[in-house]
Amino acid sequence: MLVTEQERLKSDIGTWLERYGRDRSALIPVLQEIQKKYTRISEYGMQVLADQLGIHPVEVYSVVSFYAFLDHKPKGKFVIRLCRTVSCDMQGKARVAQQLESDLGITFGETTSDGKFSLEWANCLGMCDQGPALLVNDIVYTRVTPAMVNDILETCRKTFGVYALESTHEEGHA
């Protein structure tokens, strides 16, 4: 990560701690903010946050590694999470999964080489009456069919330009 990027992250963490309070209960809300803006929680970010909260960085790592929506590895701009739980399974999740892999050229757990898409499994998304369901970041898609997969990806690609402008400065190398 470039020095300027480290400074930006550090200053963001300071802002978020002001908002959520400087105690342990602010840890997860701040981690969620970092994850959202930087698509990952870097080791540097964990160290800064630990320092500010007066706890050991390992404590922060243990929290990051526990929650499915927090990750220290870089994620794509669009994280696609397909529900694999029983109701979506019965409604044809396997074929949607197959099509996602084919259209993205990656398997579950991977990120495309251009850094746009990550593909993951999710447990029950609470859309059981209208599955198969998937999340693209915070947006829910229901009754997804294999043929719809390409439309969903295209929608992401079209909105990517806006995010790309905002985010080129945030991307760095760990």
Binding site: T85, V86, S87, N123, C124, G126, M127, C128, D129
Partner: peptide
């Protein structure tokens, strides 16, 4: 609400 098959709270 995470129990598989539950979506009433949503």
């Amino acid at each position: 609400e995470g129990e598989p098959g539950t979506f009433k709270d949503r």
